[in-house]
Design a protein around this nucleic acid. Structure first.
Length: 990
RNA sequence: GUCGGCAUAGCUCAGCUGGUUAGAGUAUCACCUUGACAUGGUGGGGGUCCUUGGUUCGAGUCCAAGUGUCGACACCA
């Protein structure tokens, strides 16, 4: 409490200060500053955007799940967006960052179901309306927490535009699009094999299935020949090839004519001949309707045309032949279960096989298995030894059943063997449970049309991907596109706008009436109208008493129960946010669309990115965004994915408390090279916080100075000229980094610019001296320049660190109410050749200073002790820029800088380029150490020279290399020779 | 299995169309409680640029093969 009071005073005393003595705390305290400025930005509507004459810069947020909480992945993603948005805003663009949340159909519904379960309520006991009431309550309770958290991070979203994928305008847009696509013939309904999530009880799209490696078993089961009368071979043994060489062991009689018995692998035991089928899912034998072999499989020729008995079940099934079967896998015998495997389904279609669905929706065993068994046993006589009554499995969970049936089969002698097997199992992305392929009636979107319109713009870089490698992934998906299953057996989501025409109890039945026909329309009234138009026969029916409205007739409409896949709303996001679906061509969509940059993870390139591109071209005839920046996955510093179970995922809000939002943002960006995974390390946030502190203290220094009118010192004149040049050059580097989305490099550029160039060099060069323990005032010109530089630096840093830069920007000069660094534009002049020369000259000065400091360090000379510097063998000080001598004296703490023809005895010398400098050390000199140092330098130079000479001695180099390169080598040679001579001379004189 | 990315200092990464004996940040070591900042200052050490071959006057950079690693996609009854 007390602490806070002090800090508040600090903050308020800061604002409006114009010079004078500093009472600022020596440590920057972000907690006292960040909330204040965020509120200020909100109060002054600084995030808000309206269409105007400026160039728009639009970003739509990848909407986080409405009930989600902020995690490190969000921090990365949103920080990048905020940096881009703030940068664009400061370029003078009309930046608009639209926030919002996603209803996340399946995830949210699962959460609501769980919560209801905790209260002892089952979803099945609720009506749709009741359930939705709970879901909305949950959404309102937890919804938007994440948006609040984004404010802590400093995100400059236009909050007035906050949208939700299930709010009014977005929902209407979704429905409109569904109807439109249906009418275009791109949406259809049909029974297909889909990915069924038995926990969520819904179908999923192919993209929602993730494959997991698992250690399972491969079960080898015996399928006995149904022709029990076939004569057994006279020989013993399980496996043999009945060739002449094998003592004429006979194959079972009745083989298909012409089938070669050569190389067959035949099994038999005392029950008879059998085929072996390998499967990972023995429980699915209950749905077996055929066995399939490859007609070209030499080891299974003997099975051609036969019938086999499904073990346990006792059903007699045919052996069919199809080249789909892999001869090499298992035994080459495939059991065909059309209801429970995608490929088997295809075989079933091809050979007109029955599909026996053995599971209930929750993947427990259905009663149907028992009924089917009874039916087939009634048709065929199968000995009891092959059969187990299936009643015992009814209601059993699928994995329990698998275990049980394997045990039972082993006990009954129906199992040949069981092997360990590594398998990849398709699991639900959301619930994690293994997917059950299931035949069901679903809605699909035809994708070929969309793939056709969405491929080229990415491949020819109308839409640019960063990094570009994801173009390949994108192309691969589009070139192998499959139809999109868009219906979900869920309630939380956009309900499919399809109605089925149903008779009333009083309605006549019969072929003329369209009972069960589907009508797709935006709402029920429309559907009603459309039904009557489409099926005029409905008009002939008498309206029951009490029916109202024109054309009211004796039928009813029953709406489809299913909801749409969440992504069916997300794919419209860049359009629906500006109401482009409901109001095509409105002012907002015309102005803000296409958006500029999309920042998202590569994991949703198909779910979302590709589909937005499709919708964009379908509905706006234009790309939805110009650039896509794919972030990496945030991992811990050991490279592991962040996960709750590992406990290696820090809470972003906790990090913000400890390091400040600016510090966390910086920590994140320091480790975030575009496109690579991010190895997040808390110590980077610490580095960020330290940088904030550095900025803060530089500010304390500058604002603590007394200003006096007076001559500008030579050193300061040089420093201000140099730093102005440095800023111009840095601005160009920054612009280049931004244009390539190299944000961590841009950050590193400003980091070094501020810390090294500004704080360590510039401020030290201009800092007024202390005389008699009192700091001297600074001259007006230098002070003014310094404040200007500081302001430019703050602007450059603002996108990365919005809070501290606002705090200091406000305090740097007198500001008007409502003004903000956010809206302060940063326009820099182009750098010149002169700038570069000046920087090179100052770099040389810096090198001299560094060398003198090194001499001090090596000789243990206190920084306070003044030294002399000799410029050896020069006629004057011309190599140094104007003011350079003064700057040198100040930075290296030199008494004098002398031009000498020969350096003093007992001095430490060094070379900068070809110029030699010496620091006389008198008795402090350690000649041996000095000699050693020079000799190692000499050795290095000689090696260097040798390599150059070798190059130049090579005729082909001199002939083939560009003249400029050869010239450069010659210069290097001359320089090296000169340096060597100079060192030799020194050594000789020692 | 197919395709793609990556491999450079202890760590994380730059290094662009080949052309100084390879750079940054961080870590580390030594020294420094100076008057903005010890969340600091100054200085130092640290590399077989994964391996092998090739192209070239010249390769961290281009090509090929291999190894390791990460990812996408496909199949696996």
């Amino acid at each position: 409490m007390e602490n806070k009071q002090v800090a508040n005073d600090t903050a308020s005393s800061l604002t409006g200060r114009a010079g004078g003595e500093s009472t600022l705390a020596s440590k920057y305290s972000p907690a006292e500053v960040e909330g204040k400025w965020y509120q200020y930005w909100l109060d002054n509507k600084l995030f808000s955007s309206k269409p105007d004459g400026r160039e728009p810069y639009t970003v739509v947020i990848p909407p986080p799940n409405v009930t989600g909480v902020l995690h490190m992945g969000h921090v990365l993603n949103e920080t990048i967006q905020d940096i881009l948005v703030r940068h664009a805003r400061m370029e003078g663009k009309n930046a608009c960052w639209v926030p919002g949340t996603d209803h996340a159909s399946i995830a949210t519904e699962a959460k609501v179901v769980n919560r209801l379960a905790e209260q002892g309520i089952k979803k099945a006991d609720l009506t749709r309306e009741e359930f939705l009431k709970h879901a909305w309550a949950w959404t309102e309770e937890h919804g938007g927490i994440i948006l609040k958290q984004l404010r802590k991070l400093g995100c400059s979203c236009d909050w007035d535009r906050t949208a939700f994928t299930m709010d009014g305008p977005r929902s209407e847009s979704v429905i409109k699009v569904f109807v439109d696509l249906y009418r275009k013939g791109l949406i259809y309904r049909g029974v297909r094999m889909v990915n069924w999530d038995p926990k969520a009880l819904t179908a999923l799209s192919d993209e929602e299935v993730i494959y997991k490696e698992e250690h399972t078993k491969l079960y080898y089961m015996k399928y006995y020949l149904a022709d029990l009368e076939a004569p057994l071979s006279s020989s013993e043994g399980d496996t043999y090839a009945p060739s002449a060489a094998n003592n004429g062991i006979e194959a079972p009689s009745g083989a298909v004519e012409g089938a070669s018995m050569e190389g067959n692998i035949i099994h038999k035991d005392d029950r008879g001949y059998y085929a072996v089928v390998a499967t990972t899912r023995p429980e699915t034998i209950m749905g077996d309707v055929a066995m399939c072999i490859n007609p070209k499989d030499p080891k299974n020729q003997w099975l051609k045309g036969r019938k086999v008995i499904v073990p346990v079940v006792g059903r007699v099934i045919p052996v069919i032949e199809d080249e789909y079967v892999d001869i090499e896998f298992g035994t080459g015998c495939l059991k065909v279960t059309p209801a429970h495997d995608v490929n088997d389904y295809m075989l079933g279609e091809k050979y007109n096989l029955e599909a026996i669905d053995i599971f209930n929706d929750d993947a427990t065993l259905s009663e149907r298995i028992a009924t089917a068994q009874q039916k087939s046993l009634a048709e065929t006589k199968v000995a009891d030894e092959f059969i187990i009554r299936l009643d015992k499995y009814v209601g059993m969970e699928r994995f329990a059943c698998r275990k049980q049936i394997a045990e039972d089969m082993t006990a009954a002698g129906l199992m040949e063997k069981i092997e360990d097997y590594d398998n990849k199992i398709g699991c639900s992305e959301r619930t994690g449970v293994p997917i059950e392929p299931k035949l069901s009636m679903q809605w699909f979107l035809k994708m070929q049309h969309f793939a056709d319109i969405a491929l080229d713009p990415v491949m020819n870089d109308d839409i640019q991907f960063y990094p570009a490698k994801y173009k390949n992934t994108y192309r691969h998906w589009l070139e192998n596109i499959k139809d999109w299953c868009i219906s979900r057996q869920l309630w939380w989501g956009h309900r499919i706008p399809a109605w089925y025409i149903s008779p009333l109890p009083t309605s006549p039945r019969g072929g003329d009436y369209p009972w069960g026909k589907v009508i797709v329309a935006e709402n029920e009234a429309e559907a009603y109208k459309l039904a009557l138009e489409t099926y005029p026969v409905l008009k002939t029916l008498e309206a029951p008493s009490g029916a109202v409205g024109e054309g009211a007739t004796s039928f009813t409409l029953r709406q489809d129960e299913d909801a749409l896949d969440t992504w069916f709303s997300s794919w419209l996001w860049p359009i629906s946010l500006f109401d482009g679906i409901r109001n095509p061509g409105n002012e907002e969509i015309s102005y803000y669309y296409p958006t500029a940059d999309l920042v998202t993870g590569p994991d949703i390139i198909f779910f979302w990115v590709a589909r937005m591109i499709m919708a964009g071209y379908e509905y706006e005839k234009k790309m939805p965004f110009r650039h896509v920046y794919f972030t990496g996955i945030v991992r811990d510093k050991l490279g592991r994915k962040m996960s709750k179970s590992l406990g290696n995922s820090p809470d972003p809000l906790d990090l913000i408390d400890r390091f400040g939002a600016d510090g966390v943002r910086m920590g994140m960006m320091l480790s975030a090279p575009a496109g690579n995974d991010i190895l997040f390390d808390e110590s980077l946030c610490e580095q960020g916080r330290n940088f904030n502190n550095k900025i803060w203290n530089a500010f304390r220094l500058v604002k603590g100075w007394q200003v006096a009118e007076g001559e500008q010192p030579e050193a300061a004149k040089l420093a201000t000229g140099w730093f102005a040049a440095k800023l111009r050059i840095a601005a160009e580097e920054l612009a280049d980094d931004f244009s390539k989305y190299r944000l961590s490099e841009a950050l590193m550029t400003v980091y070094k610019l501020f810390w090294d160039e500004f704080s360590s060099w510039y401020l030290e060069m201009i800092k007024p001296a202390y005389v008699d323990g009192k700091q001297q005032p600074i001259d007006r010109a230098t002070y003014d320049s310094t404040l200007q530089f500081f302001e430019i630096l703050l602007k450059m840093m603002h996108p990365f660190m919005p809070f501290i830069t606002e705090e200091l920007w406000q305090a740097l000069y007198e500001r008007q109410p409502g003004e903000s660094i956010m809206r302060a534009e940063l326009h820099m002049e182009a750098s010149t050749d002169y700038d570069r020369q000046l920087c090179a000259a100052v770099d040389e000065l810096k090198e001299i200073v560094t060398n003198v400091r090194a001499v001090r360090s090596q000789k243990n000379i206190a920084p306070k002790e003044k030294l002399t510097l000799e410029v050896v063998d020069a006629t004057d000080l011309r190599p140094l820029p104007e003011g350079g001598v003064e700057a040198l004296k100040k930075m290296a703490n030199l008494e004098t800088v002398n031009v000498v023809s020969e350096k003093s005895k007992g001095s430490a010398s060094f070379l900068i380029g070809t110029a030699e400098y010496a620091v006389p050390l008198g008795s402090l000199i350690d000649l041996d150490a000095e000699r050693q140092k020079l000799e190692s330098e000499l050795q290095r130079l000689e090696g260097f020279l040798a390599s150059i000479q070798k190059k130049l001695a090579n005729e082909r180099f001199v002939q083939n290399a560009p003249a400029a390169v050869v010239e450069m080598e010659r210069k290097k040679q001359a320089d090296a020779e000169q340096k060597i001579a100079s060192i030799r001379e020194t050594l000789a004189s020692m």
